[in-house]
Every structure is written in structure tokens, then in C-alpha cells.
Design a protein around this nucleic acid. Sequence first.
DNA 1: ACCGGCGGGACGCCCCGTTTCT
DNA 2: AGAAACGGGGCGTCCCGCCGGT
Lengths: 189, 189, 189, 189
Amino acid sequence: MRFEKGHKEITKKRIIEVASKCFKKNGVSATGLAGVMTKSGLTNGAFYAHFKSKEALIEEALSAALTEQHSKLTNKGKIDIEEAIRSYLKESHITNWDEGCPSAALLPEIGRQSQSIKKTYQNGMMAYAKSLALLLPNPESEETLQAATAIFSLMLGTLQIARAIADPALKDKVLEDGIQSALKLIPMK
Amino acid sequence: MRFEKGHKEITKKRIIEVASKCFKKNGVSATGLAGVMTKSGLTNGAFYAHFKSKEALIEEALSAALTEQHSKLTNKGKIDIEEAIRSYLKESHITNWDEGCPSAALLPEIGRQSQSIKKTYQNGMMAYAKSLALLLPNPESEETLQAATAIFSLMLGTLQIARAIADPALKDKVLEDGIQSALKLIPMK
Amino acid sequence: MRFEKGHKEITKKRIIEVASKCFKKNGVSATGLAGVMTKSGLTNGAFYAHFKSKEALIEEALSAALTEQHSKLTNKGKIDIEEAIRSYLKESHITNWDEGCPSAALLPEIGRQSQSIKKTYQNGMMAYAKSLALLLPNPESEETLQAATAIFSLMLGTLQIARAIADPALKDKVLEDGIQSALKLIPMK
Amino acid sequence: MRFEKGHKEITKKRIIEVASKCFKKNGVSATGLAGVMTKSGLTNGAFYAHFKSKEALIEEALSAALTEQHSKLTNKGKIDIEEAIRSYLKESHITNWDEGCPSAALLPEIGRQSQSIKKTYQNGMMAYAKSLALLLPNPESEETLQAATAIFSLMLGTLQIARAIADPALKDKVLEDGIQSALKLIPMK
DNA sequence: ACCGGCGGGACGCCCCGTTTCT
DNA sequence: AGAAACGGGGCGTCCCGCCGGT
């Protein structure tokens, strides 16, 4: 065959991954499909063989980005919560939009999308918060999940602020302060 | 004279206010200048009499939005920190994009803009954090400013998450949990 | 063999019939091959196994549509000319584009096609006119063929006008007047 | 001024006239806005300063074409009905799509458009029929209008058929027969 | 031999941010 | 401050072809 079996799935996956990075880097509405397709090694015309519309791509790319972000927590073997926080708020995460957290890069835009996309986000976000709770004492309790969500919100807001600040020294301070504050949200055993 | 003195400034201010709402509501890159001008009661061609480019408008609109958001804290007379937090995370803020916090609506997009715009954001954000710190015990200390920034980051992230979630019940829970967690970040006297 | 003999012909015929309806319903140039293939239960790629190009399909679909329209005259057993006229100009024919007369739905577009397609139309149209002449007195005479052509032209124009009119009452009147006028073109015995 | 007063109206009129010809020549759905604008000496971007959408242009171009066609009947001073028929069905009208009758070129496509466009057509067509009736005996009677409509339908259908026929000799015959038949529809004084 | 997966470009309409002249 | 237009790009869809499985 001109294309081996599974070729289409691989191609689609490639498009999704490229789109995920483009969306995170430049924003959803500022990302054009033509650019995504070119970066995927394809032409414009092939897009609609894989996706019904740009919105469908957004949904799949968001889902993939959330899964990937989630896997950063779960694939590392055992890590403690402080390590997770420091890893999220480390300096390099500021500039690495395309490989970073989709929430930090896209949340307001997600909030303006359709219910379907919001549902996708909701699922991914809840899963992430639950994994974060596993790093805390008493992982199954409701309060722990609440604490995990708070830690996530704080990290998220801190990273976004750091990214939107001009002065490098202040950036570092915001990150470091964010780490300290996040640690305060860890519940006692 | 065809227009009394000051007319131009008034017009410009109107454009900025309209743009500020449009940016917050639909995002910066999804907002077109034509729409802004039409909503301002002007025609397309008049834009460049007031602004060098879209970027210049972004900067001025952002500045205005930050000032307005700031004034919500300072204009109310005496309020305590809990009231401020509850006010920020009240349910109506979820849907009121255009009259809400510019950080919650625009932060990732601001982070992708030029240094000049980031500097604008930095100033507005620092001022806001300082005003927030005034509501806390020991307002002048460095730790208090850090706490205020943390509270702001947490509120910000929480609001964005609530806006990006599909399920209404979960939305409410996220907001309520956010309030509880924010309160924990208030330093003791 | 994967497909029994004759499978291809059946498939091709199905494509032609689907295309014939689509062309009549939406017009030739507004009809996409993808839609035709999907409605035929096939995929895009299969098209060029059956037709050299869209133009080839147009030609075959036109031919089929003309034949089908012709058969409406000849398959009914004995009918008189008035019945034929009333049947053509009955109200339901206004809305039934896809099962109606190809001339009424497509003539200007056919006039813009290649000589080859025009030849196809010419043959089908002449055959139709001759069958119409058979319903008139003195069927073999040249004047009768001329009268039949005139009746056909009148019906055709009338139906097109009725279809292009907005007011339902006027539509009905146009049809009814068309019938009366067509009857006047019937030669005396 | 860069553009004298009334410039915009002139430009719009030019677009409409160019579009009218393009629509008649190539059909509505096969005509692209880019081509129309280029032929009007403008670029793509200027289109939406003049029209809300392609549909708006269709409506205005159709209206203009109907008016122009109408004026062919009324501007010539006194003509008799036979002259009008011969003029409509003269050979040159076959090839002159772009300067010819909009009904002959576009009717089926008009029938597929929105109610609003159909209403435009209805008005133009009724006016044309009434002017045609003025050339007949007893111009004000209802029967005369009916006869005029019938003559118009017959001419229309005949021209379309002639245009869709490949053989030149047959074309001529169809036209000539059409003239003869149309004359038969003229009511007696 | 028949059929289809998968992709290529070009172009459809629409709208963007911007410029120029008055 | 507005009128008018520019050029490019957005998403979506078109017609078409290569190559190989069954």
C-alpha cells in the first residue's frame, strides 16, 4: 500500500501534537490551520480528512495536551508534592509555552469555547487535581482534593503572572514567592 | 472649530473603554478593530487618528482595564480582605467577562505580547497587589505583599478554572473552595 | 472475486442517478463530487475509477436524466397532450427539483458546457419533442414537431418562472395561465 | 479629496454591472467574488465595503440586469410585438450571454435562491411582462397580460434550448420556429 | 479488475489590520 | 474624523490523482 496500515492514525496524532503546541504557544484563535498543517508536513487540503472543523481539532488537541500534562505527574515515579510544585514553577516553564501546561497557556480561551470543549477541559483538569492530591497526606479525603485544586490554581495564576511580567528579577521573585505560598497550602498530616 | 477642545480625548477614551470590554469578552486576537470602532460610533478610518496600531490600543486598553479593576478595590471605602475575596470569586464574575478582571480574561495573551505591554501589565498588577496588601495585617511588610500576590494568583486561577468548567454544580464548588483556600493564605496578625 | 460481475456497472449507475438528482436539485456547479459519492455510499477516491472527470459525470447524468424524463411520457401508456401539459405544469413539479425535468432545472448551465454535453442534450431533447409530437394530431409532419417544441419551450419557461417567483398565489396563476397558453399551441386536426 | 463625492456610488454601480455580466455569463454559483472585483478594477478587500455578502450582490446585480433588460423594451421608442420577439430570438442573443436576458441565463439558479431574491425577480419579471403587454392589442386586459407572459415564457425556453444545442443548423431552426410559435400567441384585436 | 485511503493544491467567501487622501 | 481601498489570510471545500489492497 502507498500508506501502511495505521498511517492515518499516526498522521492524525501528528497533527494533534503539532496543533497542541501551536495552540499553547500562540493561542487558539491566533493559530491558523494552514500553519498547523505545514508544520505537520501536510497541505491544507488534508485537514478535513481528519477533522470536521477547527473546533474538533481544538477539542482533540486540548485533550491530548491535558493528558500529556497529567503524565508529567504520573510518569515520574514517586515524587513528593514540593518537587511537583517546584517543577511547575521552575523558570524554564515560563518560556516553554509549547511544552508547558495547557491550563496556563489557554484557560481564558477555553472558557470562551463551546460546552463540549469545556467538558473536555473539566475532565482533564479533575484528573490532574486528583493526581496532585495523591501526593498529599490523606489523598482520598475531600479536603485534600480541595487543597490540590487550590495548589493548582495558585501555581497556574503564578505562572501566568510571571509570564506577563517584563522585569526578569521580578519574574523570579514571583515564581519563588509562588512556591512558598503553594507550600503553605499543603495540609498537615 | 468643528469639534470643541477635548473632543478628541473623549473620543479616544470611548474607544479605549469599548476595546477594553471587547478584549476581555472575546480575547485580544479574536477582537477586530472594525467591531470596536463600530461599537464606539465611529468608522474604521478614524482609528489611526488615535492609535498607531492595534498594539497601541491593546496597551492603552489594558492599562485602562487594570486601573478600573484596581479602583474596585480602592473606591469602595473600607472593606476587609474576606469581602474582597468573596467579591472577586462571586458567581456573577464568571459570566461577566467584559466587566471583570482583565487578568482573569487576558493573562496568557498578555504574556505573548511585547515587552512594552508586559511592562504595562506589570505596573498595574503590582499596584493591585499593593492595594490588596493594604487589607491585610502589617501592610507594609514584604511578606504581606507576597501573601497578597499569592491570594491574587489563587483567585485568578480559580476564576479561570470555574469559567472553563462545563458543569454548573462543579463550578460553584470550585468557587467556594477557592474562597476557603484563599482565606488560608491570609497571614496572622 | 471480491465483487460479482456487473458490480461495477451497478455502482456506476448508482452514482449517476444520485448525481442526476443532485445536479437538478442544486445545480451542476454547486454540486460537489464528495457529496455525490457519500450519498452513493462510496468514498471520494472511488470516483475516478468510474469517470474521467466531473464533466464526464455531468454528461452521463444528464443523459440519464433526459432518458428518465422521456420515459415519463412514454411509459404511461396512452395519454393525451392536455394531460401531459397538466402533468408537467402541476404544482408539485415546482418543488420537486430532483425528480423533475432536467431541462427546467439545468438548461442555462447545460448551455455553458462543452459541445459534447450539448450534443447529449440535443439528442435527448429531440427525442422528447418527438414523443410529445406523437400526442398531437398528424404526428409525423414537420409542423407538428415544431408545435411540440414550442409547447415544450413554453412549459419549460413557465415552470422556471413559477419556481423563481416568491408569491405563492402568483405562482399558481402563472402555472394555470401557462397551461391555458400551451393548449393554444396545439394544432388543429 | 482622494475620491470625489459620489465616487462610492459609482464604484458600487460598476461592481454591480460587472457582476451582472459575470453572473449571466458563467452562472451565479460559478462566479467568484475575486474575479468580479478584479474585473471592476478593485481588490478583494474592497468588496465588503459595498455589500454585506455575496447574496446581497446577487440581489442587486439581478435587479440591475432585470432593469436593463426591461429598458431594451421601453427605450427603443415604438416597436411592435413582432419586432420585440425577433429581437429577443435573434441569433446573436444566443452567444451574448453577458448582455442578454437574465431570465434566460439565470432562471433555475434564481429559483434556488432565497425568498428575498425571488421577490426581486418577481417584481422585475412582472414589470417586463407588463411592458410586453403594452405592445399587444388591448393592453390593459388580464388576458393580454397572460398572453404576454406566455410569449415571454416561450421565448425564454426557446432561447435556452437554442443555447444548449450543439448543431448550428438546428439552433437556427429552433429559433425560427420559436418566433413563428410566439407569433401565434399574439391575441387578435 | 474494482475500489478506496489519503493527500495535494487551489480557490470559495469573508474579514483583518493598515494606508492614503480630504 | 471619515471615505475608500489594499493585500493578505482566516476556515472550509473543491476537483483530482497516486498507489495499493482484495
